[in-house]
Simulated assay, not measured.
Amino acid sequence: MQKITPFLWFDNNAEEAMNFYVSVFKDASISNVHKMGDKVLTASFTINGQEFMVLNGGPLFKFNESVSFFVNCANQAEVDYLWEKLTADGGQESQCGWLKDKFGLSWQIVPQMLGSTLWGPDKEGSQRAMQAMMQMGKLDVARLQAAYNG
């Protein structure tokens, strides 16, 4: 049992959101579903070993960018896949690898190599990579590396 679990408040579409996230991520499964009558009240699911819980809480609270999920992607193919899936059907692209999915939840879709370009030993290269990143929506591994390399 994990000590801290993200708990996501949805406006009566928690089951749809949970099913969507489980369909997007390859290592994902639904753990528990608790209904009140025929409607899901709370449920839990796991993505890559991380448990999440959802609640159908109604329209009282909305997601905003002050909380986001950072996804450490192995390569450009994974960035592209997640970006496409999470922005589909009403999701919104932002900048610097940030997006909102169709439920309004914020995600950071980030290639693993970003750290080595932004915080690498070549300080001028890091500045160039930062400038390149600031111009991007979806992050582009080749462009980031090229900017770092000069």
Rank of each mutant, 00 (worst) to 15 (best):
M1S: 13
M1C: 13
Q2I: 07
Q2S: 08
K3P: 04
K3A: 12
I4Q: 14
T5R: 08
T5M: 14
P6L: 04
P6A: 10
F7Y: 15
L8W: 09
L8V: 10
F10E: 06
F10T: 07
E15G: 05
M18R: 02
N19Y: 02
F20I: 07
Y21N: 06
V24C: 11
F25Y: 02
F25H: 03
D27S: 12
D27E: 15
A28P: 00
S29T: 11
I30A: 13
S31L: 15
S31H: 06
V33T: 09
G37T: 08
G37V: 13
G37S: 01
G37E: 13
D38L: 04
L41R: 05
A43E: 07
F45W: 09
F45G: 04
F45V: 03
N48F: 03
G49W: 10
Q50A: 09
E51P: 04
E51N: 09
M53N: 08
M53Q: 14
V54A: 08
V54I: 02
N56H: 10
G57I: 06
G57W: 10
G58M: 13
P59A: 15
L60V: 13
F61M: 14
K62N: 08
F63H: 07
N64V: 00
E65F: 04
V67A: 14
V67K: 03
S68F: 14
F69R: 01
F69V: 04
F69I: 00
F70H: 13
F70Q: 03
V71N: 04
N72Y: 13
C73E: 01
A74M: 01
Q76K: 12
Q76E: 09
Q76A: 12
A77D: 13
E78V: 10
E78H: 01
V79T: 03
D80F: 03
D80H: 00
D80Q: 09
Y81C: 02
Y81I: 08
W83A: 01
W83D: 03
K85F: 05
K85W: 07
K85V: 11
K85C: 05
L86M: 09
T87D: 00
T87Y: 01
D89F: 06
G91D: 08
G91I: 07
E93M: 10
E93C: 03
E93L: 10
E93S: 11
C96S: 03
W98L: 02
L99N: 00
K100D: 07
K102E: 05
F103M: 04
G104T: 01
L105T: 02
L105A: 02
S106I: 03
M113T: 12
T117G: 01
T117V: 15
T117C: 13
P121C: 02
P121W: 04
P121Y: 05
P121R: 14
D122L: 12
D122P: 01
K123M: 14
E124M: 11
E124H: 08
E124Y: 06
S126D: 12
Q127R: 08
Q127D: 15
Q127F: 07
A129W: 08
A129V: 10
M130S: 14
Q131W: 00
Q131V: 08
A132C: 15
D140E: 14
V141H: 01
A142R: 06
A142F: 02
R143C: 05
L144G: 07
Q145C: 05
A147W: 03
Y148W: 12
Y148Q: 04
N149D: 15
N149T: 06
N149V: 07
G150N: 12
